[in-house]
Design a protein around this nucleic acid. Structure first.
Lengths: 267, 267
DNA sequence: TTTGTCGGTTCATTATTTGAACCGATGTAT
DNA sequence: ATACATCGGTTCAAATAATGAACCGACAAA
């Protein structure tokens, strides 16, 4: 692990629920030496990745991240494009929908929207990383994205989240194959109890999967018919997102989706 | 300069007009050794600050920046709040308006909006850093923000941008005092020729200036009356932004602005 | 007064970064 | 067909920067 990696890993300790962190707390969270952490924090503050509250002395994420994110958004307008379609999806099916993109450790959500106010509701933290092996978004990404993602996982121990989480490589491979065969990924309480989800990939111009659209619902509302309906909805949205991004869906998947849709409509 | 600073400085070479950069180009831009740059790029890619195009091999800003910016926005909703008021300002006065926040090297714009389509127009690059000494936003920040900003500048050589740029500390101090006295900053072609601007600060809960709202216009459309009208408009917007952020305007400035406004209205 | 904790600094030791030389692939003038 | 240039990427001994135990002053509670 290089110095750069170590310094930047500090940023991962921030989240919506933990927006401010002090020096000692950083030391505890990261396990690095206090002096080292302090130097990291100074560097990160200098370039604007962090800023320090002058009275409480604690650190929070800095404004530079926002300006860089702007440039990123201008470069790759995935968020903007995905957002409008995810919103439409959430509105139409009245369930939580989200779009996510792969990061090193899992899927990072770029946009989500709650589906109205129904009885139970799926909680969602946008800064949370959805692990590849335990979420439908992750499985979809593994199934349709670059195979390097799956290879990276092979050397890691897969964390258990619920009693349904698959933690061995063999069953993970089965899940991925299943997703590949059916054209979408399904997960039943593998990350959080009482939450089911369905996910499909969307693609860039080189027909590479670059992210996923997913629908999450309390498992009490999930059944086979719902699952199929959700998959169809997600596929439709993925087509729109892919299209708006100037991307292309691989023919094999296009065919699979078309078949699935006609089968569901027939039923 | 630490390794961290050097690695992260690479990110500054990206902008809306330069969204993709290759290894050799990075070497040229940064002056670092090729091997070193490559290690930096690998580290930055690993954590998602960059991503590499698998075919062209060039690098662009990565998705992690977006997710971190999200958390930042949730922590400090300056952008969201400023955006709506800046948009309203641009619409009402039909000129370019922007909100900016201080960074190490100058003011970084968090939001801007063009003011309709009139004859000439001010070009604006959101990823550009507005130098403290040569823009109204910068002067406003120096005049009303923490005095440490001005102190930092004292050791640096001030860059010349136009023939109107003040590059010596003495005239800079005069400009800052002027802004402090009048309650707003004015600049006439000190950064770009043919562009004039007016800027006022907005504040946080501890009555510290944390950013500026500015109006920029082609100098052909600027005159004394316009300048006054723009200042009044900017002050009104600053009040709204400050208020929405839960901030407070220092009494001395509140009084100054009130006096100024009544004087203009009387005229 | 003591004790603990906070953020921050110091400097000899240590481990990481550095960069010239190298590689293979691709491109392109001769 | 050949030579030459440029691209991204890698290597490893030498040079340099990162590290962390000990320390400081400020503050707060016991």
């Amino acid at each position: 692990m290089s110095t750069i990696d170590k310094a930047l890993s500090l940023l991962n300790h921030f989240s919506e629920t933990t927006p401010e962190i002090g020096l000692s707390q950083f030391k505890a969270l990261s396990g690095f030496d206090k002096g080292t952490v302090h130097r990291y924090l100074k560097s990160l503050s200098n370039i604007g990745f962090l800023e320090q509250d002058p009275v409480s002395k604690s650190y929070k994420l800095g404004p530079k991240l926002v300006s860089l994110a702007h440039v990123r958004q201008a470069t790759v307008p995935v968020s903007r494009v995905a957002a409008v379609h995810v919103d439409a999806l959430a509105d139409s099916i009245q369930e939580l929908a989200h779009a996510s993109v792969p990061q090193t450790m899992g899927m990072s959500t770029i946009h989500f929207k709650d589906g109205g106010i129904r009885g139970t509701r799926v909680g969602f933290d946008i800064s949370e990383i959805l692990p590849f092996h335990a979420t439908s978004s992750g499985i979809a990404m593994l199934a349709f994205g670059p195979s390097s993602l799956l290879e990276k996982l092979e050397n890691q121990r897969l964390q258990t989240f619920t009693e349904n989480t698959s933690t061995d490589l063999k069953t993970l491979r089965t899940l991925v194959e299943q997703a590949h065969k059916s054209g979408y990924a399904y997960s039943n309480q593998t990350y959080e109890t009482e939450v089911c989800s369905v996910a499909v990939p969307f693609f860039d111009k080189s027909k590479t999967a670059i992210g996923t659209v997913a629908i999450a619902t309390p498992s009490s509302r999930m059944n086979r018919a719902q699952q199929n309906a959700f998959a169809v909805s997600a596929m439709a949205i993925s087509r729109k997102i892919t299209n708006d991004l100037g991307g292309k869906i691989p023919e094999s998947i296009q065919d699979k989706w078309a078949l699935f849709e006609t089968a569901i409509q027939a039923a």
